[in-house]
Design a protein around this nucleic acid. Sequence first.
DNA 1: GGCTTGCAGATTGTACATAATCTGTCAACG
DNA 2: CGTTGACAGATTATGTACAATCTGCAAGCC
Lengths: 230, 230
Amino acid sequence: MDQTAPAPPVEPARRPGAGATIYERIRDDIVQGRLAPNARLKTSELAHAYGTSTNPVREALQQLRGEGFVVITPNRGARVRAMDDAFVRDVLEIEMLLEPHFTRWFVEIATDEDIARLEALQQRIEETGFDDTVRYSELDTQFHRVFYDRHYNQHALDLWWRHRDVLGALSRHTRFARWREEAIIGEHRALIEAVRRHDVEGAAKIVEAHVRGSGQHLAEQIRARRAAGR
Amino acid sequence: MDQTAPAPPVEPARRPGAGATIYERIRDDIVQGRLAPNARLKTSELAHAYGTSTNPVREALQQLRGEGFVVITPNRGARVRAMDDAFVRDVLEIEMLLEPHFTRWFVEIATDEDIARLEALQQRIEETGFDDTVRYSELDTQFHRVFYDRHYNQHALDLWWRHRDVLGALSRHTRFARWREEAIIGEHRALIEAVRRHDVEGAAKIVEAHVRGSGQHLAEQIRARRAAGR
DNA sequence: GGCTTGCAGATTGTACATAATCTGTCAACG
DNA sequence: CGTTGACAGATTATGTACAATCTGCAAGCC
């Protein structure tokens, strides 16, 4: 009669390593761009590639479908989600609501230690530059995780991660435009300043602009890619 | 060499009827409360109940896991997501961002015909009352669909449906508190008025309060249920 | 009483059968 | 001669049956 659920384990920690589940490995391959958007996902092929049989692959694909990474059409198989400009716009419209909101929360509780960590990360970002897109992406993720990681809203965090991964798959292997590089650095610096001043609304505004700029840059990239015939 | 994806079919229309897929039937059973929160989901049992074998069930459960309706622990099976107050708070925090935003958009483009439809629905809601919770839930869904259905952001719409379904599973079979019934009617009426005046910010404010009230009511219900020993 | 052990039930992975879709060829037709 | 249409074979998705692995529990033993 007790029914105390033994602590909902949320989801086991993600380790993209070797002993990972099929689900994690496929998801990682999508996020890292090794499986291109719109690429066909044949169960038998994947099963062979990952050294297992088809059933685990099918289940992993179904889960990824539920999360939006994969699109399955009945009797015609699965594909990596094709990311057109409409999809990018949709995702970023949501982010433009979520991120300012969570930024407001963070600015309220930010400690000096948080600010120091932000500055250290920002310095490393500026030192590293944007040439190594993978490395930059990691640092940028760390930077924004300082803002959101401790938030209580697990559901929103999942959503943020999903959005970030999905868009990262698109941008990770393409070049940054110069204007975007400069904007990122400027916005990050302004953001740190706003946090230091505990300027809640100012920080929220900057983050909103940050997301909007990211969307414009992505849309530009998609157009360019389409103009180049793919 | 063409690669024009043949119109991404999004997802086939949902028909909870008899010829539905296993996924739709299980999801519907969760949403309608026939499968209670935290209920164990044994693959063989479900396979027998739906007249199929275990594999389709497993895949359906994986998809539902990806969408957040089901929680799967390795080697220990699947359960319907348990909805504690933290989860409700998380979901509604997101809704309090999304719904005002989409309401703003709707107020800008609302036609006289839209307003007439809202009034008709509101009248039916008031006539029907809150005793038949299932019937009320349907009408309330229709009411809010007038606001959101035509929005371009398919991704956000999916999210809204998921959130609504998940919370609906919790509230559909419990009684409304009197204060909540009165608040709903008042807020709906005020909302229609704001739309008629094309008062964008006013409508957004009302919707935000509407969602917040819904959250308070749900939290109250959960507490009461817990106090009653389940 | 606490620990071990064995067993039933459930999940997870493999192999196979069936049904649907896609590809390429070839004949009929404009 | 080029295009369209249908057909056959190959490929792939989907469903079923089965084997192996793990968990939970309860009886038995120290």
